[in-house]
Every structure is written in C-alpha cells, then in structure tokens.
Design a binder for these strands. Structure first.
Lengths: 213, 213
DNA sequence: TAGGCCATGTAATGTGTTACATGATTAG
DNA sequence: CTAATCATGTAACACATTACATGGCCTA
C-alpha cells in the first residue's frame, strides 16, 4: 500500500491529482512511479476512508481542480507508516533475468551488446540524478548536515539513487570487461559445465566457513 | 510478462511447479520472486499457449508430479525475449519513500534508528550473497572468463546483486554518519527551508552546466 | 487548424499476494 | 502424535498498466 502513503506524504501540502502526478514524475521517479490513472482512484479511496478531504476550485486553465488535503486521521496514518519500520519488498530486475538465461543465445557478442545497452541506459539515469544533486548542492551547500529537515531527507534518498545506479554502471563495466577477456581468449568451446547449477543456498551457506575463514 | 519468461528459461530442463519454486527461492531470489500460487496458473497458461507441454508421473513421496518441458515454440519465445533488448522497469523502494517523508516525525533519532535497521537488513543479504559467491569461486575458480557459458551468465547476475546491495550498505553508512554529525551539532532548530522542494527535473538539467562545467 | 497542455476520470487487462483446500509420507 | 515436506491447485483481493473518453484553452 505504498502509493497511498506516498500520496498522504505529498499531501501535507494540499494539491490536485494532476499536480501530484507531476511531482511523482519529477522528484519521486527514482524510487517510485505511478500513472495518473492510478492516482485518481487512489485519492478517491483515501477520501472515502476519511484520510483525505477535497474541495473543488475553478481553474484559470482547463476544467475545475479538485484539491485534496490531509485530515487528522490521514496524518496519523502517515505517521504510523513512518514509525512502522522499513518496508523492504522484493526487487525485480527483468534485465537480470534476461542475462541469467542469455547463455541460450550461444553467443557472447549478444550478451555484450545487451550489456552495452544496459550501461547506456543507466549512465544516462546517473547523469540525470547527478545533475539534480549538483543543482541542490549549488543552492543549499555541500553539507547535508546543515540542510532543513525536509531537504535533508529528500537529499538522502537522492544519494541512494545515485549510489545504486552507479553500482549498476560499475557492474556493466566489470561484466563487459570480463566478456572482452573471454572473447579475446578466442572461441575455445566446450568449457566444462561444473558447479553453480546444483548447490542450494543452504549448501552455499554451509560452505562459507571453508572459504572466507 | 517476465515471470513467464523466467519459467521458460528454467524449463530448458524439465521440471515441476514445485521444484521451480525451490529454484526461484534459491538462486533467482536476488532479482525475482514469485509465490507458488502464482507459478501454477502461469504454467497452465503457458501450456495452453503451447509454449510448454506436460506429462504426469507418480512421485515417490506425496501426490503425482506434473512435469513441464519446453516446446519448440516455447524455445522461440524465450529466444525472442532474450534478443528483444533489456527490459528495464521502474524500481520501487518503499523504504526510500518512508525516508523521503520522515521529516514529518520531527526527530532525527527516529530516522537514525530506521537507517540502522535498513543497514542491518542489507548487510545480512550481502553476507548471504557473498557466501554464495565464495562457494562458486571455490569450486569454479576466480576467473569468470573461464566459466562455462551458463555459469558465466549466472555468476554475473550474482555479482550485480552483490554490487547493488553493497551500495545500499554504503548508503546507510553515509546517511547514518551524516545524521550523527547533525545530532552532534546540537539541537539547533529552525534551519532555513530553501531549495529542493521547488525545482523540477527540467530546471535541474538546465542548471547542470553552471555546476559541473 | 493541429497539437499540446490542463484536468478529470472509467474500463479492461495483467501481475502479484494471501488465504484457503486437500491429502499422502516421513522424521522427531 | 505432531509437524514438516511433498505436491497440487482455487479464490479473493490488491496493485499497476494501457487504452479510452471528454473538453476547453493556448501556441505555432
């Protein structure tokens, strides 16, 4: 139920569904996303649960605006969520699944091209996040310790985005280099197919002491 | 549609729904997960689409086993997916959303405790992945360039898991240190609330040249 | 006048989780 | 005797994406 809570969090300042979508696309993008068509019914449900209330105002441009704001119950719900400890869900990376099975193509140059295009994507995302970081440190300084409470928390999530995307670019580089070493070694086919397929996590855990000890 | 494709990938070796679930929990966990109740209908749909076929065999233990295997069409579909370029979806991190709004609690010690518990989680995940890595390099050597094709691709996704989780631990440390510096500076309230809230991505992008140039 | 932005939504479909239902075998 | 593991599934619900529907205003 995280989208609901994100909407509650954003609605500490009254806003409309349309504007919330813009904020999500602008500043929340690196850790959450939602389509506008998902936001409208979510807001309606929150109002039915009395966590939000709304009023309608005419717009200078276009149709009437429906402005939502937090109720006291809404604020309580938000605080409960924040105090409830970290919500850590499963991460899903389809492109990793693709890599996992890509031996089926039987050609490392395909994997290489794939990795180049992944790297390309993430280095673009990285540049984007760093541009925002740069804009922030320019305005607010280089010591997040000194930011306002709100700015500090926002900045820290941006840092996470940067570190996490950086690690992906590093991974791409590492992998591409490894493929290149492999391709340079010439097409020596029929490498032995030991290990990796069989052992379970439990076995790996047991084997750990032999290894790092 | 990634779960279907993951099932196709795994079913290059015939298997049952039950066993596929075990593999998912064991070796795929760091980039995908699925409940068994999702797997059974997914397999059924794939069979209806003629990408899989099944036969039933008695089990030494418990009820009959339904063994699925890839059809030629299934293999085609798998290869198409692999050749279709990286599928990069939106990442969703509920705990980052929590941090983003945590200024609402008005107490950095709460954020600190939260971060400690996030760090704790990810350092456990990291230890787990490193144990597997260790088990692999022990068996198959330290040069992934020399692994079999299948092992190479599997190993590389494991590396991604390790790098990505590591970056999260680093982020936690960075953030906790920053909070500590802040708390050490004493409870100087009422910091100015400039920046960060207003500028859009587009503005940040425009501002970039001023900054990194 | 064509296309984009403002602003609201619904409907259909797809994906994922939780709970429920069944029943045999085996290890403690 | 009890609990776990083996092995299958269904049903209800929650969450997300895509497509569709409407219509005024503004800019090129």
């Amino acid at each position: 139920m995280s989208l609901s809570h994100i909407l509650l969090g954003l609605l500490r300042e009254p806003s409309t569904g349309y504007d919330l979508k813009a904020v999500l696309s602008d500043r929340i993008r690196h850790f959450w996303s939602a389509e506008i068509s998902q936001i409208y019914p979510a807001l309606k449900r929150l109002e039915q649960r009395r966590l939000l209330q709304s009023r309608v105002e005419p717009s200078p441009k276009g149709p009437n605006r429906k402005i939502y704001m937090l109720t006291e119950e809404g604020r309580e719900e938000l605080l409960d969520w924040l105090r409830g400890g970290p919500v850590i869900g499963t991460e899903r990376f389809a492109y990793l699944a693709q890599v996992y099975f890509m031996d089926a193509l039987g050609d490392f140059r395909e994997t290489r091209a794939f990795m180049i295009s992944v790297r390309d994507h993430f280095s673009r995302v990285l540049a984007h996040l760093q541009a925002i970081e740069c804009e922030v440190t320019d305005t607010a300084g280089h010591m997040p310790e000194c930011y306002s409470d709100a700015d500090f928390h926002r900045f820290v999530t941006l840092r996470m985005g940067i570190l996490s995307v950086k690690s992906k670019v590093v991974w791409c580089d590492e992998t591409i280099e490894s493929i290149d070493r492999r391709l340079a070694g010439g097409p020596l086919d029929n490498k032995p197919n030991i290990s990796l397929a069989q052992p379970t996590h439990r076995q790996a855990l047991e084997a750990r002491e032999d290894c790092s000890g």
